[in-house]
Design a protein around this nucleic acid. Sequence first.
DNA 1: TATGAATGAGACTTCATTCAT
DNA 2: GATGAATGAAGTCTCATTCAT
Lengths: 228, 228, 228, 228
Amino acid sequence: MTKLSHSSSPQPLDAQSSGLRRQPKQRRGKERVEKILDAAAAVFDEIGYESATTHLIAAKAGASVGSLYQFFPDKAAIFQAMELRHVERVKTMWAEVDTPETIQLPLRPMIHKLVTAVTKLFEQPVSRVVFVQFYIAREIFQSIDDSLTQEAINFTASLLQQRNPKLAEAQCQLLSEVCVHSSNAVILAALRTDDLQHRQQLTQQIENLLVSYLEPYMEPCSEATHET
Amino acid sequence: MTKLSHSSSPQPLDAQSSGLRRQPKQRRGKERVEKILDAAAAVFDEIGYESATTHLIAAKAGASVGSLYQFFPDKAAIFQAMELRHVERVKTMWAEVDTPETIQLPLRPMIHKLVTAVTKLFEQPVSRVVFVQFYIAREIFQSIDDSLTQEAINFTASLLQQRNPKLAEAQCQLLSEVCVHSSNAVILAALRTDDLQHRQQLTQQIENLLVSYLEPYMEPCSEATHET
Amino acid sequence: MTKLSHSSSPQPLDAQSSGLRRQPKQRRGKERVEKILDAAAAVFDEIGYESATTHLIAAKAGASVGSLYQFFPDKAAIFQAMELRHVERVKTMWAEVDTPETIQLPLRPMIHKLVTAVTKLFEQPVSRVVFVQFYIAREIFQSIDDSLTQEAINFTASLLQQRNPKLAEAQCQLLSEVCVHSSNAVILAALRTDDLQHRQQLTQQIENLLVSYLEPYMEPCSEATHET
Amino acid sequence: MTKLSHSSSPQPLDAQSSGLRRQPKQRRGKERVEKILDAAAAVFDEIGYESATTHLIAAKAGASVGSLYQFFPDKAAIFQAMELRHVERVKTMWAEVDTPETIQLPLRPMIHKLVTAVTKLFEQPVSRVVFVQFYIAREIFQSIDDSLTQEAINFTASLLQQRNPKLAEAQCQLLSEVCVHSSNAVILAALRTDDLQHRQQLTQQIENLLVSYLEPYMEPCSEATHET
DNA sequence: TATGAATGAGACTTCATTCAT
DNA sequence: GATGAATGAAGTCTCATTCAT
């Protein structure tokens, strides 16, 4: 078992926060880090974290192992850098969605907005890989990610409560938990297919799923809109 | 990377279908295989397939590596035996559910029946492990499992169509796909928590989710029932 | 730099004291440990600790790396096992020398006894290697050995003081320090030559060196006894 | 294992003797070589030759690896340059000591002169490192150093014989060998302590040690002959 | 048949050395 | 000339698998 600890030992202090061994100053260096991260995402996606070898990742990135290790102290750090990126993107996405306008939107458009955003997120191999690998052996990922799903649930719950302040917090949490898990699963399934039409149909259905699930809890006054 | 191919090398032909090197005739042998399989499931569950070592599995099973290799030609075969078990259970479960009475049931009780059955399935470490590991690195599992999800969708679709023959097949497939993926995800999430009350609440919510999603497609005549 | 820490992680508790990963129960296992230790001593002696590779050691021991790692958790542990052995031998030797008869002996015979014992000790590659390697990078050897030289000095000092109680302790310490360092160096030099006659001459000279150095501090009353 | 052969590859012929890739004509270059050599000595002293990395040396010298390789063809060349320096110093020291006045000196002052000179030599990290590293893995240092100890013995023997021509050459050699080895060891031990008073005491004792050892062989007039 | 010691391919990682800038 | 990013050979260690007992 490879321990995925936040590696720490001999690295410049200011680089620690990024998990990188060396903060690439040059454009070339940054490009290389990108390339490695993308290559790693591709490899992790294909064969999983444990099966991926550092040589394979380096080769796929068009670099040598040594080069890889110039930026990442160890294999785990590569994954952690991906986690970091993923978390950043998720937070950015939330910030973009969490606006007054969103809350004001009718349920379906709001859900469409959310589902679209999450889909866009998971279209990125890096995020997809982090999300999926995390499922396998959560014990060994000692990182920020631990709480990310919970945060996602909290975020969604807060949206729900803003829409309908009458809902109890526990209620919102429960609904959100279901929405987050189910939509993530279906979105991932949708992204797995190469048939674009099918993919769109699935995406559409996720929205239906969530709308029909949440509608009863939203605005009892206004009439629901059920057009598929 | 360990390739998870259907191992083939030197084994009696008639044993191949079971993935076992040797069909244990003796009761002691069968018990040992069970123990190993259970131990492996526990270990895979905890640290993942790749991180699990044959020694660890053997130790947890109270056996020696040598003994393990007496029954399984290689590590992959252990997983494949688990897949086999899983598939058997799934098929048995389907057979139990796929009865005239089930089709006649109102939507919610039928869904309750299904969700309960799947939950019971995933309560078994072996099945949970097979299902989850499969997600992580699908490319390396060249096995029966590949099609199992599709079969699950087909099965569910057939239930739907039996309930409402007016629905187009494609429609049923799409609805089923969404139901299968989303319910699996939430059931797994439910099983992950130790809080039994929370688990029950989640299970309840999965049913709500599916009912509210499928209801519009089911009974054109009667009025929907929306009580949580 | 290779850190030579007392490795610890996954090993049976009762093996920890010996530094071995597994306490070889079988005769075969014990022989193998012996062989590995001897091979390692030879290799360390020839090319030094850092330059020695685990493969080289294993090959010289007629074993495989894997076998080596079955007994020793890491490369450092091999050296530490050698240290342990060395310390044991040193202590045994001291115990054998530290008897009333020894103290009663005239100076030269006593020194002869000591020098002979130390020479016999250093004839063993294991002890020689531990002693010599220790010189190079004392920082990285975090072991019992740290204090061994000091203990040797203390031991010798105690012998001196027993012989002549009028000597101040500090005086004894100082004399011992000189004797220990100088005799070790010359003994080592003697052992380095293949010319047996030369070796004997050198050994003889060490005794002369120590006798002439210590004589003035020994018998204040009687006239020195110079018979060889 | 890094082979410490006299590197040879692409370097101007006339530079070979100095072990340098390029004879730095500029003052800046010479300074840099000095800095690198001092840095290397410090690093070798602390963690040993093998554990020292070229990057660490360069960093300690305030230079870059590239710069280091501008002056030294490989890591071994750095050590060899140090050996060269050491040999030069030793020879210079000998030249300074090997004068008529020295021979005329009474034994103790002469020994004091010698011990002081050697101590001053070993105070230099470069010389200390060369001397000590040489002990650890003599086989891999294929250099001038091989014979240096022998030369030291010869030199000392010649001093002895000049003082007392009656002594047989073999006798002188033997006495010198003992003196050289033992004094080196004690001087090194003295330099290892930070306690200055203790250091002085030890130095004083080395002189006592050598004087008492050699005295019997020195007296041309008196009856002192202590034939072994 | 059961055991677990032995094997060695292969993974991760370091670091001497090169070379483009 | 100086720099430090890039390279990849080589070292340490693990673990699936075999085989003697």
